[in-house]
Design a protein around this nucleic acid. Structure first.
Lengths: 192, 192
DNA sequence: CGCCGAGTTGAACTGAATCAAGAAACGTGG
DNA sequence: CCACGTTTCTTGATTCAGTTCAACTCGGCG
């Protein structure tokens, strides 16, 4: 499973030499957890990068006691406590599993070692970061001046099955709206 | 000026070997333009990355005839037509100079050559992309559930002098609000 | 069965948009 | 250096999308 997963990663992002792949196999681990498990809690220093083999997860933070989803990850997506991982600070985010999931886990330290040693791996990092940057840029555009309905339609065009896998309230906060508003948007769509 | 600028870049992001620096000097150019000059227009394929030596610029797009700022760049920031540059598609963005400016310009092709040849340069790319990703993530959080006043305060804490250099309407659309609302926020602050 | 979390619906409220008008600042040419 | 038009900014009145608060429905499950 580890080898297959690394294969998927290299195919999706950028190829790695056999040598580099072999070394990555040494460092990476496959782990499974149940739905509801918290991979990261607020305040922790998290130095782990997760790649979803099977299942899904979300990153969220608390604002005025409310639970705000910041990021979803499904099969073949990366997820990490972005601020903690890259800035070495306590995480403002929680990361929790929305389903029983299987993950590939690598530590920042091991990634740094691989990045130093292999130009290949550095490139994989650059390319996956670039993809994430482009996704975030799209989200900014969406949050800037689209109506909540447009943002919702956007999201389900990117993740058509998200409603079957993720609670309504989590989707709502990701879109920057309340659960009630999302429920009404959905209702008005079903009427058409 | 070229050498000094490259020096600034390596100090800000990640060091480069002398050899790599020398080759970058071959490819990069310093160019100056007047305020109002459009570096990129909507629909163009833009394969240039710009680094602001002196001056400032903004990226914007048109939505329903309205002008929406997506990105500001000041001294020592990068700016490019992000979608066109990374996805090889016609740019939805314009990029215009807000002041008379001096820029360092590199083409994507030359950057690819350097990335292939120098591990150093690949790393510089990864690190600068990571910084941009983190900035965008902060902006998403800001747009998701902060009030327009909080977003404004955020912005001026990051760029204290932005109001002296950038028209109000451009700042407003960057924050996802109208010019009128921003004017009122400012007025209410001055009253306190 | 009754509880519980997730989703829905309703009514009142509010922050920000819109529309409209005017004031201030800015640049350009006489 | 002033007069002019243009762009930028402010202020007011009205409207509207989305929030808030509260009650209710539904399906699952001990």
């Amino acid at each position: 499973m580890l080898k297959e997963t690394i294969q998927i990663i290299t195919q999706t992002f950028s190829p790695l030499s056999d040598e580099c792949k072999k070394e990555l196999e040494q460092y990476a681990q496959i782990q499974s957890f149940q739905k509801g498990h918290q991979l990261v809690k607020e305040g922790q220093f998290s130095d782990k990068l997760f790649f979803i083999v099977e299942g899904c997860a979300r990153a969220y933070y608390l604002k005025d006691g409310k639970n705000i989803t910041d990021w979803f990850a499904f099969e073949h997506d990366f997820i990490c406590a972005i601020n903690s991982f890259f800035l070495f600070i306590p995480s403002p985010h929680y990361i929790e599993l929305l389903e029983d999931s299987t993950l590939l886990v690598v530590s920042r330290e091991d990634m740094m070692t691989l990045s130093d040693k292999y130009h290949d791996f550095e490139r994989l990092g650059r390319i996956s970061t670039t993809k994430t940057m482009l996704q975030l840029q799209q989200r900014v555009v969406s949050l800037q001046f689209e109506s909540s309905q447009q943002r919702y339609l956007n999201l389900i065009s990117i993740y058509p099955h998200i409603e079957l896998r993720v609670p309504l309230g989590d989707i709502a906060s990701y879109l920057g709206i309340t659960q009630e508003t999302l429920s009404r948007i959905r209702a008005s769509r079903n009427r058409i």
